[in-house]
Design a protein around this nucleic acid. Structure first.
Length: 680
DNA sequence: TCGGGTTTCGG
DNA sequence: CGAAACCCG
């Protein structure tokens, strides 16, 4: 069935040989050329950060050696244009088919669609698979076939789907290598000289690569999982799964994680092990959040740049690079926050709880633009993951229907005693506070002078006073919020009067990313960088310095209100006609090959859908229908896009969009929150 | 020890 | 907002 030609298996963030549907299908279909293409420029602003690239480098090496032991090797290509690199590989190998696993971040959705179009036009058969999720985003809908807008409902549905996620596949026993004699690998460079020193430490704590991921999973399931719910509240507990970087690069399949954990759950349930069951549920919830982040990214592909609840575009952010810098350096004067930021910088890792603490502090106390924080996480986290990053920050910023309330300020002092009751975490990361008694460890500003003296602390000198008092922050936040609501109401009124030209213009002034973000080297803790010097700014915050990118903050928020009244607004549409083609992907269930097609919300993905209910047809008036394998599904045709007006999001801002957005074609999405009007 | 009012917290 | 935890008489 291979038709003589060989099969390209295009690896991306699925760097494993086990439970890799694209690889399995490629192998089944004949000889295989395994390819990885490094084209980070395509990610634009989200060029991977230093530690993330470090991981990738090692993960690829690991994959390559696994492939070698199976009979082939990994071809690597350096390019600025993935699609042409693929074409080149096609030409030099005589491939006739290409297999890959789906991704859901905005950049990949666009790029993969384009790749599919172009390759198909060249006569190449393109097959893509789900390898990253329990269920594809379009499979999980509410009773009216609309996407969920809250996590709890989404996850509940996932757990009660009528069919289980596909079972994990075993690795291939053997791979017949395609002819790569005319297809040379490029050497990929993932770190420059200046980064090597900082990266050296990482290897002590982490082992990238799919079989290490597998070990980590086993270790976790047999050990810390049982105590997971107990320990998840401790800032420095070593009992998290530590799977997130593995999962990000697809070194371990989430379906395998799910299956193994489920087995454990059944076991514990039978034993009446209450704590165990609870732990499993909690852990699965974090898997669920990961799923949900893809779900949201797919349904709202701009969620990494625009708040999903529209009012936030009127929030008067404090654009203060000094605050931003203090936060990054861990010099805010709040020990828990500072400890977290220093751990992040030193290790590329942060406990989930602490991520919430520092990001909440960032948004609520400092009131810095949330996208700065998101970007910083992206640049510094070992498990940097755009979808999760966006979801997390939107959650914190109060722009999700089920997110944290925007007017709630968390007090780092109290959280300190909650997550780090004995101050051990703070002492580890803030050596200057190490001698401070626990009583004061989370609020040194209240400590008597004598205590401070005995501990060798001089506030404002070797440890800062609080950068902003909590009370002041509360007041400022209240003020900002009332201003926001005012602006929002005004804009709405203007809209209703039809006098809305230029609406939101003043409020949605672009907020540029700081131009010269750099860490103050001498304040960096635990960096162990022998070559520390000023020319290494970009090692510290790799992608921010690469070029000056202006990014609009909140420029085109989605006003959910507009669509709230119409239930059909549930089905988002892609209005971004002139920017990039709609995405399309083919999901080929390996066996059942339900090649039915359904309209995928924004992206017009052509996908397999098991239960195409005809309510999905309402997805757009441009649906046509086609029958396949018994499934009736709508097919959305991009050329005939005529949308109901009410689906189209207000477009102010996009047109005048920053260079970033222009460089990075995004579709923009239509909202479908049901609950949004509650906020008005 | 048991209400029941209050605070916390949640994705 | 609603459930759960918490606190107090």
């Amino acid at each position: 069935m291979s038709g003589g030609g060989c099969n390209i298996v295009w690896f991306r963030r699925d760097l494993r040989v086990e439970d890799n549907p694209a690889l399995a299908a490629g192998v089944r279909s004949g000889s295989v050329v395994a390819v990885f293409i490094w084209a980070p420029e395509e990610e634009g602003l989200y060029y991977p950060g230093r530690v993330s690239r470090w991981w990738l480098k090692h993960s690829l090496a690991h994959l390559d050696s696994s492939l070698k032991s199976l009979g082939t090797s990994l071809i690597t290509k350096r390019s600025t244009d993935t699609v042409s690199a693929l074409l080149e590989v096609v030409k030099s190998t005589g491939a006739t088919q290409i297999f890959f696993n789906q991704l859901y971040d905005p950049v990949s959705l666009v790029r993969d669609h384009k790749a599919k179009d172009i390759l198909t036009a060249q006569g190449i058969a393109v097959h893509s698979f789900n390898a990253d999720l329990l269920y594809e985003p379009w499979e999980v809908n509410d009773d009216h076939s609309h996407p969920f807008t809250t996590f709890a409902a989404f996850w509940e549905r996932c757990l009660s789907m009528p069919y289980d996620p596909d079972s994990p596949l075993l690795p291939p026993k053997r791979i017949i290598s395609g002819d790569v004699s005319r297809c040379a690998s490029d050497t990929l460079v993932f770190e420059d000289e200046s980064e090597r020193g900082s990266n050296a430490l990482l290897a002590r704590a982490w082992s990238p690569g799919w079989s290490n991921a597998d070990k980590a999973l086993t270790t976790f399931i047999n050990g810390p999982l049982l105590e997971y719910s107990k320990n998840c509240r401790k800032a420095d507990s070593a009992t998290t799964s530590f799977l997130s970087p593995h999962l990000h690069f697809g070194e371990v399949s989430v379906r395998k994680v799910f299956h193994l954990v489920r087995i454990k759950q059944v076991l514990w349930a039978n034993e009446g092990n209450q704590a165990g069951e609870e732990s499993v549920n909690l852990f699965l919830k974090s898997i669920g959040l990961r799923e949900y982040s893809r779900y949201m990214s797919f349904n709202h592909p701009c969620s990494h740049e625009r708040p999903l609840l529209g009012h936030l575009k009127f929030f008067p952010w404090v654009v203060d690079e000094g605050y931003f810098k203090a936060w990054r350096q861990g010099r805010t004067g709040y020990p828990l926050v500072d400890a977290g930021m220093r751990e992040l910088w030193a290790t590329g890792w942060l406990h989930d709880r602490i991520r919430v603490v520092v990001s909440s502090f960032f948004v609520k106390v400092l009131q810095l633009p949330w996208r700065w924080g998101m970007k910083y996480f992206w640049d510094t986290l070992l498990d940097a993951d755009l979808e999760s990053d966006a979801l997390g920050w939107q959650y914190i910023s109060g722009t999700l229907p089920d997110g944290r309330e925007i007017d709630r300020i968390d007090n780092p002092q109290f959280e300190g005693y909650k997550f780090d009751p004995h101050g051990e975490y703070v002492r580890r990361w803030l050596p200057e506070l190490a001698r401070l008694p626990t009583e004061w460890i989370h609020h040194p500003w209240n400590a008597p002078e004598s205590v401070l003296q005995a501990a060798g602390i001089e506030l404002g000198s070797n440890y800062p006073r609080p950068i902003v008092e909590i009370d002041a922050a509360k007041a400022r936040l209240d003020e900002a919020l009332s201003e926001m609501w005012q602006q929002e109401a005004a804009s709405r009124a203007a809209l209703e009067n039809g006098t809305d030209e230029g609406l939101g213009d003043s409020e949605s002034m672009p907020i540029a990313f700081p131009t010269d973000i750099q860490m103050d080297v001498d304040h960096e803790p635990a960096r162990n960088n022998p070559t520390l010097g000023r020319r290494y700014e970009d090692q510290m915050v790799p992608s921010m310095t690469s070029s000056f990118l202006r990014v609009e903050e909140e420029e085109t928020s989605l006003d959910l209100r507009n669509s709230a009244t119409d239930s059909r607004a549930e089905v988002p549409t892609n209005v971004n006609v002139n920017q990039e083609p709609r995405r399309e992907a083919i999901q080929e269930g390996n066996m059942q090959t339900v090649r039915s097609n359904v309209t995928l919300p924004q992206f017009n993905m052509t996908i397999g859908l098991r239960n195409a209910e005809d309510s999905t047809a309402e997805s757009s008036s441009t649906s046509t229908r086609r029958e396949r394998d018994g499934g009736v599904v709508p097919v959305w045709s991009p050329s005939t896009s005529s949308y109901s007006e009410q689906f189209v999001v207000e477009d102010n801002g996009i047109a005048t969009s920053s260079s970033y957005l222009q460089r990075q074609p995004q579709s923009h999405q239509i909202m479908n929150w049901r609950r949004l009007s509650q906020t008005g």
